[in-house]
Design a protein around this nucleic acid. Sequence first.
DNA 1: ATAGATTATGGGTAGTTGTGGGTAATTTTA
DNA 2: TAAAATTACCCACAACTACCCATAATCTAT
Lengths: 154, 154
Amino acid sequence: MTINQNTFTGEFSYSLDIKGRVNIPAKFRNVLTSDNEQSFVITRGMDPCVWVYPVTVWQSIESELRKLSSLSRINRSFVRSTVRYASSLQYDKQGRIAITPNLIEYAQLGKEALIIGMVNKIEIWNPKLLDSVDQESRKIDSSEFDALANQIIL
Amino acid sequence: MTINQNTFTGEFSYSLDIKGRVNIPAKFRNVLTSDNEQSFVITRGMDPCVWVYPVTVWQSIESELRKLSSLSRINRSFVRSTVRYASSLQYDKQGRIAITPNLIEYAQLGKEALIIGMVNKIEIWNPKLLDSVDQESRKIDSSEFDALANQIIL
DNA sequence: ATAGATTATGGGTAGTTGTGGGTAATTTTA
DNA sequence: TAAAATTACCCACAACTACCCATAATCTAT
């Protein structure tokens, strides 16, 4: 039994080809899907990147959304923004996925795509953008970052 | 019963071969893995070296990461930086591990690799780098170093 | 001291993975 | 409705990795 049974870890560099396809790391494939669930969910990330969820994880998000009353305007807006960019997907016989132009534009993806395991989901980044976003985050919240490291890293 | 039952101690020098493989000291093997858990986790160290964790230790880090909400930007950045360079691994039939090019570059590993027991994890160093980093640390924080020694050494 | 076992290091091979491109089917557009 | 564009499916190859075996050095036990 490996830890990758349930979680995504590691970083992989792949090329986004002219048809908008990227490889999904072999290590991630049986985490993302199973024998009885071939599809998964792709959507916008909170950062300028693409998020890819296993169906089980997405379903728990969806069930939370169902609990939100549509009477509240902010609830409606939140549900809309969460669901709007999400779509169900499968990989092709080679283990690649086709990223929609919408998402390519949002994540500003070029020829090189960096795929990062984020425990319960996958992120797909433009490498340069990732660097600048992470640097920015750490500059602004450096003390918070250090506090987390102190608390969590063994 | 030996002290090595649960902790990593001591220092060992091995060669990193052309395929990026290093031996894991025989003494460490049953600390790192067990009959029902064959894999372990390799990642970047805080210093310029490689860290190797038993699965149990890594899992407690991971479970803390799962608690962090993705709504906070610094949380996302922290999870990313922690998980990004980590991967699950097993040794081959000879008791070696294959270190990824990423990590070899980060730790500036050459032909000679120094493996050091660090109680709850293993460190893999370029010997020269280790010397200079340790000297540097002690020069800068010498009073702190002495205070720790005073407090801990019996 | 010697034989057997374990450990350290090197290399070969088969299978998997990553990448590109072709063709048919489907959708979109004029 | 027909042409154009897009998408889905398929095949092929190159690169890499995992697995295997071989040998030398070291350690252990009698």
